[in-house]
């Protein structure tokens, strides 16, 4: 704003945020931060249920939380679940999306339907349907069934960033160039396409990780106590010990923040995408 044709006061008035804007944005920031900030403080407060400010501070509850039986097991279970879902997702989604883009554009509408379908099925309904159909089969109520369910539920989160990344490079030309130099389709995919879409792959994997790590409904309804994951442990402690539940919540929030910020950072750097998508809460 070096050259200003209007009078300076008019320009200032235009650029200064208006009162309604400040109020709305303050409300939004307050709503989004207060519950999380309170939980962070609650987790290090000795006692905070009688006075406006915490009565003292301690890290004792983190020690108790990490010492709690099931803590390591549930963390391990959550990692097993999210990492194996990412693996299944990568192995299935990348080649399929690549193939449809380069060789089978006709199937794009089928793919779109398959990717929107999970949003149309509430997780409790999916859990009920899966438990009934696979009841009595070898994978009934087993971690394999859970991974299948969680894969379906999280697959749009992997699909979108990868599909966006593939669109931003000219996959067809790259493939033809690779093949004219004598590479097989598999070689082109592994050595040309994947290195070029890795920001999308990492964004997708982080989104699936954040989603599956926080998954509660499918895990609880399909396996329940047999496979206790981190969110299941958290909910259990909200009924037993608030301070420890707060420590668990802080761990969850921190993981979610880190994953989201990483995705945003990758998205800023190159291809990638917004994390926004309908979710099951």
């Amino acid at each position: 704003m070096k050259i200003n044709r209007k009078s300076p006061t008019a320009a200032q008035k235009k650029n200064r945020p208006q009162v309604w804007q400040i109020i709305l944005i303050a409300f939004f920031i307050f709503y989004m931060f207060l519950p999380i900030l309170s939980t962070y403080i609650f987790s290090i407060a000795t006692r905070w249920d009688r006075t406006i400010f915490p009565e003292g501070f301690t890290f004792e509850f983190y020690k108790e939380a990490t010492d709690a039986s099931y803590f390591t097991t549930s963390l391990r279970n959550s990692l097993i679940l999210s990492l194996s879902t990412i693996l299944v997702s990568l192995i299935i989604i990348i080649p399929t999306v690549y193939w449809v883009n380069v060789r089978l554009p006709k199937a794009k509408s089928i793919l779109d339907i398959l990717m929107i379908l999970p949003f149309g099925i509430p997780t409790v309904v999916l859990a009920l349907a899966l438990v009934q159909v696979y009841n009595g089969t070898p994978i009934g109520r087993s971690p394999v069934l859970l991974i299948g369910a969680v894969f379906i539920y999280s697959m749009p989160f992997m699909y979108r960033p990868i599909s966006n990344a593939l669109h931003s490079i000219d996959a067809l030309t790259l493939t033809e160039a690779g093949q004219s130099l004598g590479a097989s389709t598999l070689q082109v995919m592994l050595k040309v396409i994947i290195p070029n879409i890795y920001p999308g792959i990492i964004s997708g994997s982080l989104l699936v990780f954040a989603t599956v790590f926080a998954e509660f409904t499918l895990t609880k309804l399909i396996l329940g106590a047999r496979f206790k994951t981190f969110p299941l442990l958290l909910v259990e402690y909200t009924r037993i010990n608030g301070n420890i539940a707060a420590a668990f919540s802080v761990i969850s929030f921190t993981i979610a923040w880190l994953a989201s910020l990483l995705i945003l950072w990758i998205g800023k750097k190159g291809q990638g995408s917004s994390t926004q998508a309908p979710h099951a809460h």
Binding site: F28, P35, I36, T39, V235, S249, L261, T275, A277
Partner: peptide, 22 residues
């Protein structure tokens, strides 16, 4: 916008507990 983008994904158990604390 980043704040909205991130908090869209917050939900479930930890959020519910955060509201109990608040």
């Amino acid at each position: 916008i980043a704040l909205a983008d991130v908090t869209t994904n917050f939900g479930g158990a930890p959020l519910a507990f955060a509201f109990i604390v608040t």
